[in-house]
Structures are given as C-alpha cells and as structure tokens.
C-alpha cells in the first residue's frame, strides 16, 4: 500500500529496514527531519541513537561502531559533511564500511538552507586527504530514498569502503507516495576483520598508520585495485529514450527537473533523452561512451556551477559536444530553463 512520506523519513526508515544498527548525528538544516526521525524510530527498534556533541564526534562514532561490526551511519548537510571528511578518510584508510548521508545545501561556507548539488566534487573526488574514493549513490525519488540505504550498506560492506548517499534539501523535505517494500537486510562481504573480542583466536589489527618501508604504498596499491574493481562492476544509471539525439545528464533532483523537460521536449517532437547516473562514483562512463556515436550533444544540468560536467567531459573525451547549464547558491533549475538550453544547441 502506498503512503505519503517525506524524503528524509523514507531514508531513515530505509536504513532501519536495512538493518542499520547505529545512527550518530548532529543537527543541521535541511536534514534535521532525518535525525529527528531516527531519534524516535531507533529507540523503538531498541537500536543505538546518539546525538553527538559535534560532526567530528559523530563520524568517529561511526568509525568505532563499524570496527566493532555494526551497520553504522551518520547524516549531515554540506558544512557538517565537510567536518566529517577527516573521519571518512580514516575509514577509507582502515577499509571500514559505513554510511554517510549528505543532504546538500547551498554553499560555500554556511551558505543557505536551500537544496543544492554543489558538493559533487567533495563526494566523488575523495573529499578528505589521501588517495581514496567512497561509493556515492544518488536517489531521485522518495521511493529511492527508502531503498538506497540497503544498497549503500551492502556495497560498502562488500568492498570495505565507506558509502555516501548524496541527496539534497529538496528531495529530503518533499513528500510523495511511496511503498514500504521489503528491504534486504543481509550483511554482505567478508567479516573476518571485525574487532569483536579475540578470546580463543589470534588478535586482529585495524589501522591506517603504516610506517614500515613500502607498507603504505602497498596498502595504496591494494586500495586502488579495489577501486578499479568497483569502477568495473558497480556503475549504475537510468536511461530514458536511448535513441535520443540530445542527451540530458543529471542526477538527483535535477534529474527530476530534466524528466519534466524531456516530456515537454518529446511532446514538441524533439529527440531528447535523459541519462541519470545512480552511482556518481563510480561514474557511469561506460554508458556515456556507448552513447557517443549516436548522440549529437550532451547537456549536463546541475544545481551547481558545473561539477559533474567534468566527469561527462572525461568520459566523452572530446568526441561529442558537451553543454552545461546550472544554477548555484541553492537556486533550482526549472524545466522551462532546460528547454531553453536545449533550444540553444
């Protein structure tokens, strides 16, 4: 049965149904509804909810819970996610699974509290220090907000690396009908590294400080091998109108704006389609390369000054024109603006 649900609540419920055992948060708009939801529901489920004293504390609680084998998560919005970057880098270095949610708002600095997509670079280029990547998933509906935590936990455990759900203030605050479908809560991946007490077995060690000669380079090589495997196996996307001549590329809320624009453009007889990356790291570059021979132009739409467009350009590699239109500072692109941009091509 369908029910009306807010994006942030759907994400919270999705994480709970996915077996999320511990949530650590610190308030910031526009993701407070998620923390509020978890404060009630996690206790009802007799799981762990802690309002930490800071974002730094929250991400390090995720680190600790993950090391001990819990499915742990934290959420914040842009300025708060910046504060978590040190902890995320440590988790990547220690190969710890865990879920971070970024409900993006306008930046830089404190910015404003409107929905935005300006943290794309931070999300897909590592974010903190060191050579690392996190798996980045981007929901585009309240239904996906509900279903994505399960996917995130599972990929994160399979590859032993943090996963991030990159969403925004619009998707988090909007409501639409959704269905509480059954969610896979099975833990995935090898669990022989978990620090759960060494009575009767050899002690285990988890660390990111590797001072022995060559040790850190070897560790980095191992991480990169893993990232290449993720790139090869986990690119996800949705393609609407694969025969299109003009292919819009957009994720999350801007994909929804583009969806309306595609409907409008098709009504006018224009051959316009939409490629919606679901993973933005790994970026779905294979499908873009496959589309290059048939597509006359790509038009990338973002709520930023142009970030994902760089990944599209890398994939296209100069073989087809790539155009960009975006609105920055928490402003939202309208379908009319997208149609106007299509007209300019």
């Amino acid at each position: 049965m369908k029910q009306l649900m807010k994006g942030s609540a759907a994400l919270g419920e999705g994480a709970i149904q996915a077996g999320g055992g511990a949530y650590f948060g610190y308030p910031i708009t526009p993701q407070n509804e998620l923390t509020e939801y978890m404060s009630r529901r996690m206790l009802e489920e007799r799981r762990v909810f802690i309002q930490a004293e800071s974002e730094l504390a929250a991400i390090n609680m995720v680190f600790g819970a993950s090391v001990a084998g819990a499915r742990a998560m934290t959420s914040s919005s842009s300025p708060g996610v910046s504060l978590k970057q040190e902890g995320i880098s440590y988790m990547a270095g220690c190969e710890l699974p865990g879920l971070i949610v970024n409900v993006q708002r306008g930046g830089p600095g404190l910015g404003n509290i409107s929905g935005s997509q300006a943290d794309y670079f931070q999300a897909v280029r590592g974010g903190g220090h060191g050579d690392y990547q996190v798996i980045v998933l981007t929901p585009a509906s309240v239904q996906e907000m509900y279903e994505m935590p399960s996917m995130a936990f599972s990929l994160s455990e399979k590859y032993r690396t943090p996963a991030l759900i990159l969403t925004d203030g619009i998707l988090a605050q909007m409501q639409e009908p959704m269905e509480l479908v059954k969610i896979n809560a099975a833990r995935s991946g090898d669990q022989s590294w978990i620090l759960d007490g060494c009575k009767g077995r050899a002690p285990r060690k988890i660390r990111s400080l590797l001072m022995e000669e060559g040790a850190l380079e070897a560790h980095n090589r191992h991480l990169q091998k893993k990232y290449i495997e993720i790139k090869n196996k986990e690119q996800r996307y949705q393609l609407i109108n694969e025969q299109a001549e003009i292919m819009l590329v957009a994720y999350g809320v801007s994909a929804r704006v583009c969806y309306t624009a595609v409907q409008e453009a098709n009504r006018k007889g224009l051959k316009v389609g939409l490629l919606r990356p679901i993973t933005v790291w790994p970026f779905p570059e294979k499908i873009i390369q496959e589309l290059v021979p048939q597509v006359k132009a790509f038009l990338v739409i973002e709520l930023s000054a142009g970030q994902m467009v760089e990944d599209v350009n890398l994939a296209v590699n100069g073989k087809t024109p790539v155009y960009f239109y975006g609105r920055a500072g928490g402003a939202c692109v309208t379908p009319e603006e997208v149609i106007k941009e299509i007209g300019k091509i």
């Binding site: 909007m174 409501q175 929804r256 704006v257 969806y259 309306t260 939202c332 309208t334």
Partner: peptide, 30 residues
C-alpha cells in the same frame, strides 16, 4: 508531490508549500 518551504520562517512569518497533482508521474516538485 508536496514540497514545503519553512526555511528560516517562524510563527508569524510567511510559510508556503507547493503541491503538484497529475495523472502521470511528476518530475520537479518545485
């Protein structure tokens, strides 16, 4: 789709929300 806007607005300030109702699936809620 329903999208609220109560940003920094408080009791006594202005608040608004956007509701789109359609026969087919809805893209932008704005």
């Amino acid at each position: 789709t329903y999208f609220p806007s109560y940003g920094a607005e408080v009791r006594g300030g202005t608040a608004h929300c956007s509701v789109t109702i359609a026969d087919t699936s809805i893209g932008s809620p704005v």
